[in-house]
Write a protein that binds this DNA or RNA. Sequence first.
DNA 1: ATGGGCACCTGGCTGC
DNA 2: TGCAGCCAGGTGCCCA
Length: 271
Amino acid sequence: MPELPEVETTRRGILPVLKNQSIAQVVVRDARLRWPVAPDFARRLTGQKILNVERRAKYLLIRLSNGTVIWHLGMSGSLRVLAVGTPPQLHDHIDVVLGSGRLLRFNDPRRFGCALWTSEDPQQHELIAHLGPEPLSDAFNPAYLVAKAKSRKVAIKQFIMNAEVVVGVGNIYASEALFRAGIRPARMAGRIQPDELQRLVKAIKQVLALAIKVGGTTLRDYVNANGSPGYFRQKLFVYERAGEPCRKCKTPIRHLTQGNRSTYYCPECQH
DNA sequence: ATGGGCACCTGGCTGC
DNA sequence: TGCAGCCAGGTGCCCA
């Protein structure tokens, strides 16, 4: 479910609630996530103070006085803030109960998410250390992307979805950014001209920044920390719009499959 | 090194 | 009404 804007929206929602709180209790109802929740997860967290909530790629980093929780929402996960005593529902796998009388509740129907405690520097964690630059940072710039794309034969859409190239660009925003940049998603990355890649860098930054501004995209079940949906769906130009008229030129939007994922583009606006 | 395909899992929708 | 088949915001891993 969540791409970078949804994870960032979640981070901003939970940060003020979690910051400087102590963890009174942790309830793990189902440990069968992508990687099983460690048997000592609850014990490691209980009694710790939450110092900050950061984000790297689509991972939330919950900084505690004794370490860090690396939390990923997978395809269908969400973190919500609720009052202690709120009855758990189906797929509510983990509760982090705070001293304030509120709790952080993790719901994840498909269980592709994970929650890992580490005492080490999370930036050095094997899931995080090898990741490419943050899309909204200066390190992600045209010169970088041009160098990175050189002689790469993968389709540009799969290329920008590769977290080693740039993090945080998922299936929705990859199609949307390519539309905004006017680039066809199936073209080989290494054959895209520098000026086009420059437009693409700009488009990725713009689309992600705008999506964060409006709270992300809710297609089916994404909700933020307050249980509210995101409003970027209204601003989608191509995603899930196959057959519908392009918002710029009225040409029907096309669909294709790349790497087992759906891609959408306008045959008139993208070359 | 690179690219491609599959696996993990549940639920919602479609069409027979 | 029931059910098989297909699809879904991610990403690690295995194979050529």
